[in-house]
Design a protein around this nucleic acid. Structure first.
Lengths: 233, 233
DNA sequence: CGGGGGATTTACAAAAGATTTACATGCCGG
DNA sequence: CCGGCATGTAAATCTTTTGTAAATCCCCCG
């Protein structure tokens, strides 16, 4: 990581703000914050942030308005909106420029961190982060070169294996079904009656490589009846 | 951007179709199309789209019919209906068949894009809220990951269990009969003379997990002679 | 052609889940 | 109190899903 990724949190509630800040700083981000709408807009427009976390309900100016203005200036600026449960649908519907993601309060912090990572990854700012996938303390995968390490064991991967890992990471907040993997990684049309074990086999191969104990997966877990899920640290 | 949002346009008029496609592709969506009813239904059912734009007047099969069938398979599939006829009747029929929104032709493209964004946003936020089910102070169920907590006890659920909980929550204003559960959760045809205790067993399993005292249910109560009812917060 | 790496299918075992069975318990109108 | 349902649930059984070794297929390249 060459430079720290910079986040702006625009949130008036002290408790949420500091809670988020702590966690995100802990995850290695460079975090600033703003406590009300105008200050948030000001910072968002003047500073250069890789991602902005925007509460919807703010004193001075609401989050939608801010999002709008930010987008008016820079349509590629990544923004995640934090919406309160029960937000009026009309407000949502009236919104003219979309954020990159939405997280409904109350959210779990772990959940939010995953979303932040996913948005950054999608927006390419984390492009070089994408190239390296870390699991726990000692597993590392270099996705470009299809190589990796587990402790001091050298690993090599195939393209499919790496693609699977990347897709699973992009969706590490939920289990991904075999069908979805076939569709998104293999490019198969989703067909309810195809029957193949290919995905399972690839999972097994990956486990043999990245798991300390393949019989007791720590990272590549199966959610029975739903698919597989990659547990990022 | 790795995960583009996928739209399906079902529209027979060449001019409208390509016009829409251009604009939506410009807005960053991954767009496919179908030119008639059967093809549209086929793609809608086989591929996985985040949103389907459905013309009402189509050769082969009308849009309402298609919408109906789509919903029969996936009740959460977002659909926007497009129609030339601006009568209230069409709107009502479209919405009652489960379309998420309705746009009358001729529409401005900007208008349509806004609707598309709004529907996507709603379905996403909706999914987000749906994914977590809270009961009282200390019970929480993560429906996507089939996991939960009761106080500091970790819980794990099966697909069926979670589906039952979700259906009961959706109807938490009344008791739901066993037959209805069998029909809606299991997909059995409603048959008054089948005799099975499956529902009861699943209820018992759920109680063992989510109830502090399974013998004295607080959340998953039985309404004798009527079925079960979930008491949400 | 032939070899080789990777992908896929086959085949079977094991595990988890769903359902049935069987019996216990409890509720309610007479 | 009694009889008849409706419900609760442990245990047995059946079904589906998953793990995985080994065989086979496929495609690229010399």
């Amino acid at each position: 990581m060459q430079r720290k990724i910079r986040l702006l949190i625009v949130e008036d509630e002290e408790a949420i703000r500091t809670g988020l800040m702590d966690v995100l700083v802990y995850h290695g981000y460079d975090v600033e914050f703003a406590a009300d709408g105008p200050e948030g807009l000001d910072k968002a427009l003047s500073g250069r942030f890789d991602l902005i976390l925007l509460d919807v309900m703010l004193p001075g100016m609401d989050g939608f308005e801010i999002c709008n203005r930010i987008r008016a200036q820079d349509r590629d600026q990544p923004v995640i909106m934090l919406t309160a449960k029960g937000t009026d649908e009309d407000i949502i519907q009236g919104l003219s420029l979309g954020a990159d993601d939405y997280v409904a309060k109350p959210f779990s912090v772990a959940q939010l961190v995953l979303r932040v990572q996913a948005v950054l990854r999608r927006s390419r700012i984390g492009a070089e982060l994408d190239a390296t996938l870390r699991l726990g303390e000692d597993v590392e995968v270099d996705c470009r070169n299809l190589q990796g390490q587990r402790g001091d064991v050298a690993l090599s991967f195939t393209r499919r294996e790496v693609e699977m890992l990347q897709y699973l990471r992009l969706n590490s907040d939920r289990p991904v079904s075999r069908d979805e993997l076939l569709a998104k990684v293999w490019g198969y049309a989703r067909n309810l009656d195809i029957e193949t074990r290919t995905v399972d086999i690839h999972i097994a191969k990956l486990r043999r490589k990245i798991e300390p104990d393949p019989a007791q997966p720590r990272y590549l877990v199966t959610v029975r009846g739903a698919g597989y899920r990659l547990l990022a640290e």
